[in-house]
């Protein structure tokens, strides 16, 4: 049950996408999102979808895993689609019954919305699937570096994020373990009404909090023992380097995204 959480999960590998500089990946995904919202017309979307498919193929991550990441969003996607269909008004009525009128315009709007959300999520999933959380925070810290000049504690934020990300799997594993241990004593997490279920969580949450605080304490102590004192004057073991592959990706994206926008303007 808990194992199904794949959002933000990293799948190690050695594909071109894995090897890219995470800074470039983040920037490109951001540009991609902007392009996605600027794009107009079916051809522009087809071009973006093709780009998406190419990136997926390059990542060498199984399609089934990518689809599984999309599953939690299914509800939102369906909800938006239905809302769009019902509320967008137009002249070309498709069906009409009771107070609901569905027009061709509504169907178009819904289709665009769905395409937009799916393309958006799949690209961000691809980013987190191919970039380890540590690389991701490193890159964010570097990209936000200039903000340090105006006294934004970028390093501290990045460190907090790194630690939080680092402990998500640990906490999930621990939750699983404590859950099993309490189930072994007959705890029942799966039946009963919502109040009973909430009460059943007590034997899970208390040990979980206790151990989370213990871990935090130990980690803080261990960091102090190694003289951690924030980011000042700290050098890095892993320095991010932009390589040929990154500039190549940048060039391909520039051309491609340019194409999408031109298509949107021309057609």
């Amino acid at each position: 049950m808990l194992k199904d959480i794949t959002l933000g999960q990293f799948f190690p590998g050695n594909s071109p996408l894995h090897r890219m500089d995470p800074r470039f990946k983040i920037v490109l995904v951001m540009v991609y999102i902007v392009v996605l919202f600027v794009a107009k017309g079916i051809y522009a979307y087809a071009l973006i979808a093709a780009f998406n498919a190419l990136a997926m193929a390059l990542s060498r991550i199984r399609v089934r895993l990518l689809l599984r990441g999309l599953r939690p969003m299914l509800f939102i996607v369906l909800f938006t689609a239905i809302l769009n269909m019902i509320y967008v008004s137009g002249e070309h009525v498709l069906v009409s019954f009771w107070v609901i009128t569905i027009t061709w315009e509504g169907v178009y709007a819904a289709a665009y919305m769905v395409a937009r959300i799916v393309l958006l999520i799949s690209a961000t999933l691809l980013l987190t699937y191919t970039t380890s959380p540590i690389m991701l925070t490193d890159a964010i810290e570097r990209l936000l570096g200039p903000l340090k000049k105006i006294r934004v504690p970028v390093h501290e934020f990045a460190m907090m994020m790194t630690i939080a990300l680092r402990f998500i799997p640990t906490l999930i594993e621990e939750t699983d373990k404590i859950m099993s241990a309490q189930k072994a004593r007959g705890a029942d997490f799966e039946s009963g009404n919502i109040f009973r279920r909430a009460k059943a969580l007590v034997p899970l949450l208390i040990p979980l909090f206790v151990s989370a605080f213990r871990r935090a304490d130990e980690l803080a102590l261990a960091m102090e023992c190694r003289c951690y004192h924030g980011g000042e004057g700290r050098t890095r073991m892993r320095v991010l380097h932009a390589a040929r592959i990154d500039f190549l990706a940048l060039a391909v994206c520039a051309v491609w995204f340019g194409g999408v926008i031109t298509l949107g303007i021309l057609l």
């Binding site: 404590i178 241990a181 004593r185 007959g186 007590v202 034997p203 040990p207 206790v210």
Partner: peptide
């Protein structure tokens, strides 16, 4: 689970 009792590895972390 009542017939077959299982004491986990490091069971002290399940006290609540």
């Amino acid at each position: 689970r009542f017939q077959v009792g299982l004491v986990f590895q490091y069971p002290e972390y399940q006290l609540f």
